[in-house]
Design a protein around this nucleic acid. Structure first.
Lengths: 204, 204
DNA sequence: GAGGGTCTTGGACAGTCGTCAAGAAAAACC
DNA sequence: GGTTTTTCTTGACGACTGTCCAAGACCCTC
């Protein structure tokens, strides 16, 4: 049902899913630039190759589109953050790489991270987002915990906090850095790097 | 200009400001329950004793109303958080009081805290909010720093991090606890209390 | 109590929103 | 090539938005 035939043509079910992905990407781009509150279906369609009516051919309503976007955003997040998982062999090198990695993705994907915090705030009001948002948060928590446990192992120590506490602290650090970076604070990235090293050292 | 006359009647300038406050409070209540994205001027008016037209008598437009609300919200925040500033005489008692205080305000004012994170996310998209949001953040940072430095003094140590890093970590902790509390996680409050004690101990 | 400024109402306005349906266009099939 | 099916465009709908305004209600002073 999801395979291709002998001539390499996609089967109908695949085409349908491909178009959904294409429209969801246009929606994500619009959401990242305008924010959830100001994003309309017509604006999304204008950022794609299609007219606004086609959105209801591929999605039942706006909620299904946004939900699909959140899920798609999640997979992009996991891919992006897995790249941060380093292969360092020394504790201080790992701490430096982690700080650099977080600062790099904050700078290059600032708009997407901004959207993430916007959608997570929306999930506090709109229950239909909560499941997907919770799964993204869980994935990020695992990513942070991998770094913390690796750092602990490399330095011959044990983590001094739970996985949830470690993620909460790093997420707060990242969010503050993003806020200041978007407000054109030139020290935001350096403070994120320094804060990452300090938190790693203090939490294990 | 802001005083009352001999008979205790308010001067016109005061009446004007009082009505602005009254309408802003109705707006804040609406914002806290619906969120920024779903709050309209008519909805705000319905949560007050007036009709929707009066909003443009006291506020130039929606942006000025919302901005005024954010400023008003800030003063409420400062008042609320100053109550958390404890007068403990021992380090472990201070850590316990701080955790209990944060957990208490999270539980009793959950909707207002939800609104705060919503508005802070909006400030990443809407530049007109940034100044006020930044000032609120700075006030919260001072509140956290007061707790951290007091804790350090009581335990005869020095803070191991900057004020910004400490606030970022505690803010992340609080926001995760709020997310889980709103998602009906029964352990959210206890984890916030435990996390507060752990962060205090580890960051000084 | 009359007059005049302050305050409030409720409706009208031009846009925009999500949604839908009819039909054109394109693609797939025989 | 003609027919059927899938895909897409276009225009319309009712509801809702922020904004504005004419008219009335209110309140204070003389």
């Amino acid at each position: 049902m999801t395979s291709t035939d002998a001539r390499g043509r996609r089967r109908p079910a695949d085409k349908f899913e491909d178009r959904r992905r294409e429209l969801a990407d246009a929606a994500l781009q619009t959401l990242a630039t305008l924010g959830y509150a100001r994003t309309s279906l017509r604006e999304i369609a204008q950022n794609s190759d299609f007219s606004h009516g086609v959105l209801h051919y591929y999605f039942r309503d706006k909620v299904e589109l946004i939900t699909y976007c959140v899920q798609r955003f999640k997979t992009q997040c996991v891919e992006r953050y897995d790249a941060v998982a380093t292969h360092a062999t020394a504790a201080d090198a790992l701490a430096r790489d982690a700080g650099d990695g977080l600062a790099a993705t904050l700078e290059s994907d600032a708009l997407m991270h901004r959207l993430w915090y916007d959608l997570r705030s929306q999930s506090m009001f709109e229950e239909s987002f909560r499941l997907d948002v919770g799964e993204i948060d869980a994935g990020l928590e695992r990513m942070i915990w991998r770094i913390v446990t690796t750092y602990a192992h490399l330095s011959g120590r044990e983590p001094a906090c739970t996985s949830a506490t470690a993620y909460a602290a790093f997420d707060g650090l990242f969010q503050q850095a993003l806020l200041r970076h978007l407000a054109a604070d030139p020290e935001a990235l350096d403070d994120l790097r320094a804060g990452t090293r300090l938190l790693l050292e203090r939490l294990v």
